[in-house]
Amino acid sequence: MLQTIRRYALMLVVRPVARLLFGLDTIGTEKLPTQGPAIVAANHNSHVDTLILLCLFPSHLLPKLRPVAAADHFDKGGFGSWFSRNIIGIIPIKRGGASRHEDVLAGAKEALARGEILVVFPEGSRGEPEEMTRFKTGVARLVEFCPAAAVTPVYLQGAGRSLPKDARLLVPFNCTAVVGDPISWSGSHHGFIDELRTCIEALKQQAPPLRWE
């Protein structure tokens, strides 16, 4: 029931509104995974990024799509938590403050084992709008755990201008998503995230120039 509502809300409300406000220009969406387990990794500038990534997939895959999101931001309890977990479909992840023996990736690993498609932002934080920061190794540890899940790199541009961190106003701008070829586990954590980062930076060349200073 909830899944049906989510699917129709995406098709009839969320996607048309997102197209109106953010254009959703896409390049290479045929490279996106069509079944799980799989991981989609993108650079992160704005809360709008998650919305754009969810809109890229056909709506029948929505129940399988699980954005991995910061627990300190989206899982603070109450209605917000319920909405993030059940409507957006997030998997909460602890940032910092976790004890040594606790596996913060446990939730994400279970999702991969269930054959779901994880949506991750390896930067770990939105940071300065339209600037890419260091990648964390979590995504590499997830592929190491589940080598069957290839990582599809996506370069996102423009959402940081529409809704940057700490902004109160949403301003419509066209956003672009460029999807690259999936990459598989290479045997080294740092080697893997370096390769992923290089891929996403290369995809930037296909997006229209961004002039925003």
Partner: peptide
């Protein structure tokens, strides 16, 4: 207008102006 203002150079401080343009 959204296409134009997406491609044309604008500054970080201009978000409110862009909203006024809409």
């Amino acid at each position: 207008l959204k296409e134009f203002l997406t491609l044309a150079p604008t500054r970080k401080e201009d978000r409110l102006i862009v909203l006024l343009a809409y």
